[in-house]
Simulated scan of single mutants.
Amino acid sequence: MLRIAVCDDDKAAAQAHKEIAERCLQQCKSVGETAVYTSSDNLLYDIAEDHFFFDLILLDIEMPGNSGMEIAEKIKPYLPNVKIIFITSYIEYAIDAFELSIFRYVPKNDIEQRLPAAIQDAVRLLELEDGKTYTIQTNSRLERIPYREIYHIERDGKNACITAASGVSRVRKSLQQVYEELGAEEFIYIDRGCIVNMIHIMQVKDGMAVLKNGKALPISRSHLQQVKEQINHYWGMHI
């Protein structure tokens, strides 16, 4: 079951966003529940103090007390994998949203069209993260690694070295062969010898891809522009 939170100090807007979210869940044939908050402080309290869990949060940026931007930054340590959709009237926030690894930015003047698309994309991504696995099978070994747990894959001689939340696994295959077997758009080359899972990229800075596990991986100059474009496309971080 997917858990969604809607936070907007405007009660009518919050209710409207809740109804859009529920329609999107039905259209995606997904089961979920939606909680509504009209105070950003209450949302933060429930997450930080009462350990509420959410998969997706629809967050208005311009709110009294803690702004949506501040709330997003404070929420991340408690819910590092949560998908956040910012809703705002101000275009300049999109740049800061990218630094916070926000899933999508939705302008209020186009909310009827953009918000449903953003929610549906988030739901599909959450389901993808929860489902697929990569299998390593030899005569003496069978290992399944969930896609969502894979951080990056590097070439190590004739092996591909897979770094995941569970540890490091090696498979005697070329990097390209593993890439083709994965067959998922969230995995991208950042260098001829390294593939990264985009769901774990927190930011691209100074030619490095910084991952959620703290690892910073160099992006080759020849790949840098393409990597930025792929991340923007994948996360929908365009205005």
Rank of each mutant, 00 (worst) to 15 (best):
D46F: 09
D121I: 12
M202E: 14
R114Y: 04
K29R: 13
K18V: 05
S220D: 12
D206R: 02
E181K: 14
H238A: 15
N213I: 02
I102A: 10
L25V: 07
V168H: 03
K29C: 12
I87Y: 05
V36A: 01
V106I: 09
D156H: 15
Y189C: 01
V178C: 01
I57A: 00
T138N: 10
G207I: 06
A184E: 12
H51W: 09
D206W: 00
S169R: 13
T163R: 06
C28M: 14
A122P: 02
S169T: 09
G68A: 05
N213K: 08
D191P: 07
D55V: 07
N197D: 08
A35Y: 06
I61Q: 10
S40C: 14
I199A: 14
E143G: 11
C24S: 05
S174W: 06
I231R: 03
I190K: 01
A164S: 12
G193Q: 06
S39E: 07
V82N: 04
Q226V: 10
Q113K: 13
I153L: 09
E180Y: 03
P146G: 14
E49Y: 04
D60Q: 06
I188P: 03
L100N: 07
K173D: 11
N232P: 11
E185F: 12
M202V: 15
D96M: 07
L115C: 00
G131L: 15
G32P: 13
E33D: 09
C28R: 04
L128S: 15
E129N: 09
A48F: 03
Q15T: 11
G214E: 04
D60Y: 03
F103K: 09
L224V: 01
T34E: 01
D110T: 05
G131V: 14
S30A: 14
A48L: 06
I119D: 00
F53I: 05
T34G: 00
K228Y: 13
R155M: 12
I195W: 06
R3C: 07
G32S: 06
E62K: 10
A5G: 00
L59D: 04
D206L: 06
Y90E: 10
V171L: 07
A94M: 13
E229K: 14
E112S: 00
L217H: 11
L217E: 03
E22W: 00
Q226E: 12
I95S: 09
E19K: 06
V178F: 01
D9Y: 10
A14P: 07
K29S: 09
I145F: 10
I57P: 02
A48E: 11
G193W: 06
A13T: 08
K132M: 15
L182T: 01
A165Y: 06
A122K: 02
S174L: 06
A14M: 02
E33H: 03
F54M: 08
K205G: 07
W235N: 10
A122T: 05
I84E: 09
L142N: 12
C161W: 13
N197P: 10
A117W: 09
V168K: 11
V210C: 04
N197M: 03
R221G: 15
T163D: 07
G68Y: 12
E112I: 00
M69H: 04
P64W: 00
C7M: 01
D121Y: 08
M198P: 03
C7E: 02
A72H: 01
K108G: 01
L43C: 02
L126K: 06
S39I: 02
S140N: 11
I119Y: 01
M237R: 12
A97H: 09
G167H: 08
T34M: 05
R144H: 11
A216H: 05
R124K: 15
N197T: 05
T88W: 10
